[in-house]
Design a protein around this nucleic acid. Sequence first.
DNA 1: CGTAGTATTGTAAGCGCTTACAATGCTAAG
DNA 2: CTTAGCATTGTAAGCGCTTACAATACTACG
Lengths: 347, 347
Amino acid sequence: MRGIAHLARELGVSTATVSRALNGNPNVNAATRQTVLEAAQRLGYAANQAARSLAQGVTHSVGFMIELDQESTTSTDYFFMGVVEGMQAVLAAHGLDLLVLPCAKSQDNFTYLQRFVSRGAVDGMILAETRRIDRRIDLLQSSGIPFVTLGRSDSGSGYSWIDLDFEGVMATAVDRLVQGGHRRIAVTLPSGDANYGSIFAEAYRDSLARHGLAFDEDLVILTRRREDDGDAVVDGLLDRPDPATAIILFYEVTAIGIYRRLAERGLRPGRDLSIIGFRGEDSVRFLTPQVTCFHLSLPDIGTAAARALLAQLPLAAPASSSGIVQCRVPLSLVPGESDGPVPAGQA
Amino acid sequence: MRGIAHLARELGVSTATVSRALNGNPNVNAATRQTVLEAAQRLGYAANQAARSLAQGVTHSVGFMIELDQESTTSTDYFFMGVVEGMQAVLAAHGLDLLVLPCAKSQDNFTYLQRFVSRGAVDGMILAETRRIDRRIDLLQSSGIPFVTLGRSDSGSGYSWIDLDFEGVMATAVDRLVQGGHRRIAVTLPSGDANYGSIFAEAYRDSLARHGLAFDEDLVILTRRREDDGDAVVDGLLDRPDPATAIILFYEVTAIGIYRRLAERGLRPGRDLSIIGFRGEDSVRFLTPQVTCFHLSLPDIGTAAARALLAQLPLAAPASSSGIVQCRVPLSLVPGESDGPVPAGQA
DNA sequence: CGTAGTATTGTAAGCGCTTACAATGCTAAG
DNA sequence: CTTAGCATTGTAAGCGCTTACAATACTACG
């Protein structure tokens, strides 16, 4: 606690020797190192972080910037923990600390990020909830600090990102439904300005097009991440001359409301309306029939992001090509009974 | 980006003046300050964090240590974001940065904490998931760093903590049930070693005792935070000579499984089994009949913790008595229809 | 025995910023 | 006209650590 000088004096060596011993510098007598390490342990000494950073010009920590949104607080939550877990594991293995930096939705996320970056508080950054147009990316690129984003963006160019394979998910889902004879396939999209909303929407149109199905904007419904929205979805899709026979949910939790509403109307999921959820969530596990959905390992996202960042850090990176990683993490389909072929005699 | 010296040279003043201007030191000519601030803005200058910390001996940041647990990931969940939101708001208002520090369950949380503390990486600490015996508290106390815990512990003494008013919750719940004629009141408790489990259990026994009800350990059931456990709960409580007529749930999500199982047995929540949940959770909102439960503002917990910490920091703390805050945040009962009087003709 | 070469340690110069203290230029009182 | 007193600015000494470079002590060799 009293600094390296204290420890050095105690041992009768110079601070340089202590520093070298502690940092694994090879130019130290093995015996000396041993002594120093023991003494450090005994006296509970740990190098002052600020001093180290200042002297080395490196912080040994990376930031993960997340946004706090009172509204969708519970949604980010689950996603968050799993991802952080993966990141933490990888970074820790490389001697890096992960600092989760929460930015209130109410404050300017650009300024918030800028503070940490320009102050040199972290060696690298990971961003979440990327927007289609996201100034933060330009900021990071121009500042030259290594970074990775969770989610693609149209801003910046040639930077590393990790994203979900929304295209693959959508293609698989639509293929499956079309296979079952569905031609009126609806979709729910997230309200909000994160880029994944747009991507999911595009993938939807593309997939329909591939099968020669017309796009009908009446089959597109914006939802929040709440079960309540199910009523509107069901009534909106079925009470029309050309009702939808299937729906793909961005927020799987919507299934709860849909199931309830269907039950009220005496209808059954998988027969009267085929439902495919996007991302297997605990809160939907108990529904009967089981929701057909796509699964995903949250920690894997985190490790992927962390690795992508490591590739850019001046650590043991053996000149790994460009160092840029752009990866769409695939999700696997977990068949349930919430979807099925169009009943004979229906459109 | 190029340091305060660069800025100073650019302006033809000394670094001291620049520093003073930037830090709001009153001994600077107003005009000079203006010039400096403008130049800093224009050149995108921001003081190096490490250098500041080293010179000032203060980091202007506080850590919030959380534990990542793949298993119970969903438990910490929902809790996290809301609480962080409150903390962040209060701390930011005082010019402090909040660093969320995730510790993998697999690694030693004591060592993890120690690193950040002894390195002087933060000015203060907030701990979550306090254990009944928690060495981290002793560590923090002996290190002298200001800290607050979310949850009580038997370790340490005279430190600040914020916790939920489990006692109040339990008393209210039991009172309400007894009022309805219940005398066989069961409870579910969290498995795991966090202290709140023990506290909830004690409060349960105390409340029963207050009403002269005997404690029966058969009425105590350990659950995880999953809806599945409902089956065991229902069958275990009802299939016995002296069945329980009511149950208080630590994890409200258990209600989902209970409802399902009751339905399978042709029974109805609120009539055949009274249910009171502990903490209103989104995932249970959709159940019918609505679960009677206790509500809580997550951000309030966060702000309370942050304030308790601020009281210990050498900021604008006007000698606030001892600076120690120990507070049990009350929860409000939100009546639903999942509980009711014991039907006539029953035990 | 002298010397180049190697292993180990010490010396001291920063890293970029803050801040006590000294210095300067004024203003206003004597 | 002098000088005490205030406002403003500059000078320079660290903060605790790392690291280039110098110094020292050995070892092995010719």
